[in-house]
Amino acid sequence: MILKRYFLSLLFILFYKASFAQLKQVAITLDDAPFTTWSDRTPLKTLEEANTKILRAIDRYTVPVCIFINENTLIKEGETDARIRTLKQWLSNPLITPGNHSYSHPNYVNMNASAFQDEIIKGEVITKKLLQGTGQSLLYFRFPFNALGSDSITKAAMQNFLKEKNYISTPFTIESSDYLFNTLYQQALDKNDKTRAKAIADSYINYTIAVFDYFETISQEQYKRQVPQIFLGHINALHADCITTLIEQLQKKGYTFIDLTTALKDNVYKQHDYYAGPYGFSWFYRWEYDPQKRKKLLQSQPEPPDEIYQQYLKAIRTAPTK
């Protein structure tokens, strides 16, 4: 009997360790808050409704989310007060952590350091004012396009500036090109083509799950465990309509949702980022010292469906300016 209990206990311990090793967690981050991805011609009511939809899904499933804000889209004649109220709606939600995404979403590799520093400072003015008295701080910054600098010198210079400003430069591990799908999705909505819109949304969800599967494999191969993932998406029409489905699909895959601060405590995020250049790819690749190994990892990542990609290229060639 004692021997039996011993083996049962041993089996339980092994099962517990195996289960714990496969614990899957993800921190959701959403860039371009609250209006950056929409055309200037989009009615304010549409913008407000889309933001409200995303917030309702976050509340329904109790998902912590970090948003990265571009304050330039808050300023529009006759709408500024209403636009700021929408941002305040995000910031008053206890599940939301605010982040700075620069004032107007420029690409750092296309400008000098001084001008980009001004973008960071200008991009925090309204947000910090709204946070007064809430107990929250503006701790996180994410580079637009995840372009941290064209070379090691410009990269180091901006990282030092962020530290001086008490910002944490925010990484990500998973993104699934939602901007690409959203362009086509918005196009379908504009034409009131609900069948096409649904097909695009379904394709996006399927592709996103495939990308999660890929990075789970990379995590297991490189770290022998499932590291806490950081997902990068955007506040846009696509997510307004299908973020609920995305959350549910991730839950089915065994994910629990954690806040960004908790994710960043994992030692994996204390690794050195070896990449300096214009491309905004996953930190799984940036943690790889060998450029050739990094290239092989990049080449093995699933690509969006070719039909979707070709239609996206056609859409951006023919799209009117904002």
Rank of each mutant, 00 (worst) to 15 (best):
Q132F: 11
L138F: 13
I120P: 00
I121G: 06
M111V: 13
M111W: 07
I120F: 04
F116C: 06
T134C: 06
L138T: 10
T127A: 00
G123C: 03
S114L: 08
E124H: 05
L130R: 03
N110G: 12
G123R: 06
G123Q: 03
G135K: 13
E119K: 01
L130N: 02
S114F: 05
A115F: 02
V125C: 06
Q136E: 09
G133H: 11
S137A: 13
Q132I: 09
G123T: 09
S137H: 12
N112I: 04
Q136V: 13
Q117A: 13
G123A: 02
N112T: 05
N107C: 09
V125A: 09
L131D: 06
Q136P: 00
F116I: 00
Q136K: 15
T134R: 07
S137L: 10
I121D: 14
L130K: 04
G135S: 08
Q132G: 08
Y108G: 02
N112R: 08
T134Y: 10
I126K: 12
L130Q: 05
N112S: 09
L131R: 05
N107P: 01
Q132N: 11
D118C: 08
Q136H: 14
K122Y: 07
I120S: 01
L130E: 01
N112M: 04
V125R: 11
G123D: 03
V109E: 15
E124I: 08
L138P: 07
G123K: 04
S137G: 10
T127W: 07
Q136M: 13
L130D: 02
M111T: 14
M111K: 05
N107G: 07
A115Q: 11
N107D: 12
N110Y: 11
L138E: 02
A115R: 14
S137C: 06
A115K: 14
N112K: 10
V109R: 05
I120E: 06
V109L: 12
Q132E: 15
G123M: 03
I121K: 13
D118Y: 12
Q132P: 00
M111L: 15
Y108S: 02
F116K: 04
N110F: 11
K128C: 09
I121H: 09
E119W: 00
A113H: 12
E124Y: 01
I121R: 13
D118F: 10
N107A: 12
G133Y: 14
E119Y: 00
N112G: 10
Q136G: 00
I121S: 11
M111G: 09
A113I: 14
S114N: 13
V109N: 15
L131K: 05
G133K: 11
Q132C: 07
I121Y: 06
M111Y: 07
A115N: 10
G123F: 06
S137R: 12
Q117D: 06
I120V: 15
V125K: 14
Q117M: 12
F116R: 05
S137K: 15
V109A: 15
Q117R: 15
V125M: 11
D118I: 08
I126F: 05
I126C: 04
N110A: 14
V125L: 13
N112A: 03
T134M: 09
N107H: 10
K129W: 12
T127C: 01
V125Y: 12
F116M: 06
S137Y: 10
L131N: 04
A115C: 05
S114A: 15
A113S: 15
F116G: 01
E119C: 01
G123L: 02
